[in-house]
Design a protein around this nucleic acid. Structure first.
Length: 491
DNA sequence: AGGGTACCCGTA
DNA sequence: AACATACGGGTGCCCT
């Protein structure tokens, strides 16, 4: 089977219980591997660009595209990635999309009504404080009310952020700084949070509940430049977490009767990948001994013993650790940590003197990227970085950050994909588990299943084992498991 | 009316 | 001048 959007075709075959062809060759995915930042991966776009022909979906054109892709994949060393990873994954994604996740529509509708009522109340309060009615959702109008009509200004010594077009920003970060200046700020923040929940999550999700009472997202296999998946209609990879209304929302996702929701989460997978790729001895040691990595980092950069690490020190270290994966500079670190620029600079310098191999590794990645104009991960997945030799310093620096992030983010993504494939194979082999365990969602470093209660215990062991064994790093992979009666009530 | 963009914001 | 990676998506608003 060869063509575009094979995931959709395979879903059709599966739904009508027809056989799946042995060989699958998705042209969109193939060209995505060859260059992951094309505008799109349709035949209409690719055929003129790569084989200089109009796309007419004929056998002839499809075959010509395939021949080009096969050749190129071979040349770039990505045959294995294509045939052994992405194509088998396609089948797992098809299953996942068919499965969907159960939603309690009644609960969600109640939530919708409550949010609507509360938003009306907040709107009235905001109008009263403002002394006028206006569109709270319009940053322009809101800015006019806050900064002109009410003349709210920054407290002494604090600079207020401007948007790229020069207007005073009304984003969360800015409003929080102004909290003490006027009662209206808290109301706006509360309104924003609830409006976001209703407009982005509650309402669209209600519309997307299928006849089977479930929501079936669409996974985009060609949606990112790093090899991650993305998800749309709805995006199941940015469901809110952590605040009260988010908890209520997640409470609407439920397993089928007799099943539980069970999530398997790779713990610190990107930092583990970074430790392994860089070979940094301190970080490897920390993971080998299953230490609290952020606490350990805090002890290192502050030059204190582990037991002297304060929660605040740990928080800085956590920001620092994540920042390192992204190539954060001291200005950004200062901003996100609240430190002065000078202190931020010192911390980063300290970080790199403690974890020398990380610095070395990053320099090597940048050097190779400049030489090749691409960067690749251990599996040969590749991202082109033409800007890394740009004469614009900003563009070149940005490409450098993309370069050091790519091998980490993309290997972590591959590891999850490998685990998904292994799990798919395992489930096919275990007849006695037939329909007792279903993979529902993947969220970058997490897999969510629904599992029949009589096999939960055994399944937890099998799945986490497959995940932890999916890829051999120089540090162990660790999986944490939670299960519950809703997506919120998990432990 | 529909397209493009600015701003904002949710996740890993 | 930009200064942390990767995404999808809602609403406002200006344009054609």
């Amino acid at each position: 089977m060869i063509g575009f959007d094979l995931k959709e075709k395979i879903k059709d075959l599966k739904k009508t219980r027809r056989g799946i062809p042995e060989e699958i060759f998705d042209l969109g995915v193939a060209f995505w591997l060859i260059n992951p930042d094309e505008e799109n991966y349709t035949g209409e776009y690719l055929a003129p660009k790569y084989i200089h022909r109009e796309f007419d979906n004929s056998e002839e054109v499809l075959d010509e595209l395939r021949i080009y892709a096969v050749d190129k994949l071979k040349e770039l060393g990505m045959e294995k990635l294509f045939y052994k990873l992405e194509m088998p994954l396609l089948l797992v994604l098809a299953d996942m999309e068919i499965n969907g996740i159960g939603v309690n529509k009644d609960k969600l509708e109640i939530l919708n009504k409550a949010a609507g009522k509360k938003l009306l109340e907040l709107t009235q309060k905001i109008y009263k404080e403002a002394g006028a009615s206006f569109n709270i959702n319009s940053p322009k109008q809101l800015g006019g009310i806050l900064f002109n009509k009410l003349s709210i200004g920054a407290p002494a010594g604090i600079k207020i952020k401007k948007t790229p077009t020069g207007a005073v920003s009304t984003d969360f970060e800015t409003l929080v700084l102004l909290k003490k200046e006027h009662k209206i700020i808290d109301l706006i923040l509360e309104y924003r949070e609830l409006f976001k929940l209703q407009s982005t999550y509650i309402k669209p999700f209600l519309e997307l509940i299928a006849k089977d009472g479930r929501i079936h997202t669409n996974y985009l296999q060609t949606g990112t430049v790093t090899g991650r998946l993305s998800s749309e209609n709805p995006n199941m990879q940015n469901i809110p977490a952590g605040n009260k209304s988010a908890d209520e929302f997640k409470d609407c996702f439920e397993p089928a009767r007799g099943y539980s929701l069970v999530s398997f989460d790779y713990s610190q997978i990107e930092l583990r990948v970074l430790a392994s790729l860089s070979g940094d001895p301190k970080m490897i040691e920390a993971f080998n001994n299953d230490l609290d990595i952020h606490k350990m980092t805090a002890a290192q950069v502050n030059n204190v013993p582990l037991e002297k690490v304060t929660p605040q020190m740990r928080q800085f270290a956590k920001t620092l650790n994540f920042g390192m994966v992204y190539g954060m500079g001291f200005i950004a670190f200062a901003k996100s940590s609240g430190l002065s620029a000078a202190d931020a600079k010192k911390f980063i310098a300290e970080y790199f003197s403690d974890f020398k191999q990380i610095k070395k590794w990053q320099e090597k990645v940048k050097e190779d990227a400049r030489k090749n104009c691409f960067v690749s991960n251990l599996n040969g997945r590749r991202r082109w970085l033409l800007n890394i030799v740009s004469s614009s310093q900003f563009l070149a620096k940005q490409a450098e950050r993309e370069a050091i992030n790519m091998p980490v983010q993309s290997l972590a993504a591959d590891i999850l994909k490998i685990a998904m494939i292994k799990i798919g194979e395992e489930l096919r082999l275990r007849d006695q588990w037939n329909d007792k365990i279903r993979l529902l969602l993947t969220i970058h470093d997490e897999l969510l299943f629904e599992i029949k209660d009589d096999i939960i215990k055994e399944a937890k062991g099998v799945i986490s084992g497959l995940m932890e064994g999916a890829f051999k790093l120089s540090v162990p992979l660790k999986v944490s498991i939670e299960s519950g009666r809703t997506w919120n009530k998990m432990d």
